[in-house]
Design a protein around this nucleic acid. Structure first.
Lengths: 223, 223
DNA sequence: GACATATTGTTCGAGCGGGTTAATTTAGTC
DNA sequence: GACTAAATTAACCCGCTCGAACAATATGTC
C-alpha cells in the first residue's frame, strides 16, 4: 500500500523524530518484564498488545521487532519465568540437615516460595488452561535439570540409608505432592475463599497450613 | 430441541418460518451445555459467541435473549457447574464406615471425581485467573452448604469421639488438603508432564498417587 | 381473540486489536 | 566521513467479534 508523502510542506511543521540511545538488551528486558505482568494478570487472549506497549518505555513496533507476534512474546515470557524460578530454587541449601529436617524445610520453603511468586503461578495456571501448548516438550525441558528434584533425590537417599524413610517412593512423586499443596494455596485462593471464607489465607491460617504441609510430607515418607 | 422439519411448500421464494415447540428450559439448557464446553476449552476471552451459537441447536439471538451478554452467560455457566458438582458430592454415602475408612474413602473419591470432571476443573482454573470476579460472594455461597464439608465434619467428629483422631483440626482445613491434591492432579497435568514426563498420569502412577493422597490425609489426622 | 412470551432470520456497524508499512536515527566499520 | 546494518519512531490498516436493530411469526394462556 503506497503511502502518500506525509511531510506536508504547507503544514509547515516538520516531525522531528526524537533522538534515542540504542539499547537492544534493555528494550527486550523492559518488554519482557511488562509483558510478564500483563500476561500474568489477564492471560494470553485477555491481554492487549496495545496495553503492553503502553506500559513499556518503548513502542508496539519494537515488540513485534523483537518477538515476532503475540504468541512469540508469550512463549518467551513463559520460558523466562521458568528460568527465574529455577534459579531461585538453586539458592536453597540444606546440605547439613538430617533428612527429616531437610525434607520438612524443603516442603515449607516451597510453600512460602510459591506464595511469593504469584505472577509465576498465574502464568503456570494460564499455560495449563492452554494445555501446555507453548512449552518446550518433555525432551528439551528435561526434568533432571530441576534442582528441586535433585535435592529431593539426595534427601530421600540419605533418609533411606539412615533407615528413617520407607522405601518405594520416588523424588518426582514427592515433588508432585509438595507442589500440589503449595500451588493450590495460591492458584485457588480466589474461588476457595469465596466459598469457604478467607480465614485460611490470613496469617494464622497460612501458618497452620504450612505446618500441615510439612507434616503430611514427612509422615508420608517416614518408615 | 429437535426442530420439527417442515417442507417448504413454496420452495425458495417465500420465507415461511419453520414451526417450533416452545421449550424455554430446553433451549436454555442446550445453550448452557454448549457454552460450558466452550468456556472450559478456551476461557472467557478466548471463546467466540458465534462459535457457541453455531454449536447450539438454536441461534445467537436466543443467547442474548436469555443471557444478556457474554459475561452473563459465563456467570450462569459457572454457577451451573458448581451446582452440578455439589449434587454429585451429595451422592456419596459413607454412613456405615468407621471414621478412618470413611476419611480415606472420601479423599480417594474426591481424587477420582476430579479426574472425571475435567471441564469443571478447567472452569475453576479459568475463574481463578479472573480472581473469582464472576462468583457469588462468600455470603451467598455459604460453605456450610457444601456437602463435602458436612461429611468431613461428621467423620472428624466421630473420629475424635472414638479417640482415633487428634484434636485441633477443622473440616475446612481437611477439605483444603484433599482438594489441593485432587485438583492439582488435573489442573497441572499439562505443565507437570512436560517437565517431568507422563508417567505419574498413566494408570499405575495414578493408582499410586491416589493411595498416597489417602495415606497423607489419614496420617495427618490420626492421633 | 387478545396478549405476553418464545422463536427464527438477517443484517450491520463500530470499535477493538493484532499486525504492517514507511521513514528516520544510531553506531559500528573501513 | 561515507556506508550500512541494526535500532527505533510514527502512522496506518483491515478483519474480526460483540452486540444491537429490525422484522416477522409461532405458541400458549386466560
Amino acid at each position: 500500500m503506497e503511502k502518500t508523502k506525509i511531510s506536508d510542506p504547507a503544514e509547515g511543521e516538520d516531525l522531528p523524530r526524537r533522538s534515542w540511545k540504542q539499547d537492544p538488551d534493555g528494550v527486550r528486558a523492559n518488554i519482557l518484564l511488562v509483558a510478564r505482568e500483563a500476561f500474568a494478570e489477564k492471560g494470553l487472549s485477555g491481554t492487549r498488545m496495545d496495553e503492553i506497549a503502553a506500559r513499556t518505555s518503548t513502542s508496539k513496533r519494537m515488540i513485534y521487532y523483537y518477538f515476532g507476534d503475540k504468541e512469540g512474546l508469550y512463549r518467551e515470557v513463559l520460558a523466562d519465568a521458568y528460568r527465574r524460578t529455577r534459579e531461585a530454587e538453586d539458592a536453597l541449601e540444606l546440605g547439613g540437615l538430617p533428612p527429616d529436617e531437610a525434607l520438612r524445610r524443603l516442603a515449607e520453603f516451597t510453600f512460602d516460595h510459591h506464595r511469593r511468586s504469584q505472577d509465576f503461578i498465574r502464568l503456570v495456571m494460564i499455560e495449563n488452561v492452554h494445555e501446555g501448548r507453548h512449552m518446550p516438550s518433555a525432551d528439551e525441558m528435561s526434568g533432571e535439570n530441576s534442582s528441586a528434584i535433585r535435592l529431593l533425590e539426595e534427601i530421600y537417599a540419605r533418609g533411606l540409608e539412615a533407615g528413617m524413610f520407607r522405601a518405594g517412593l520416588s523424588a518426582v512423586e514427592l515433588h508432585w505432592h509438595i507442589s500440589a499443596l503449595s500451588y493450590f494455596n495460591v492458584s485457588n485462593r480466589a474461588t476457595f475463599s469465596r466459598i469457604f471464607g478467607n480465614e485460611l489465607f490470613e496469617e494464622e491460617g497460612q501458618n497452620t497450613l504450612r505446618r500441615h504441609v510439612g507434616d503430611m510430607i514427612l509422615k508420608l515418607v517416614l518408615a
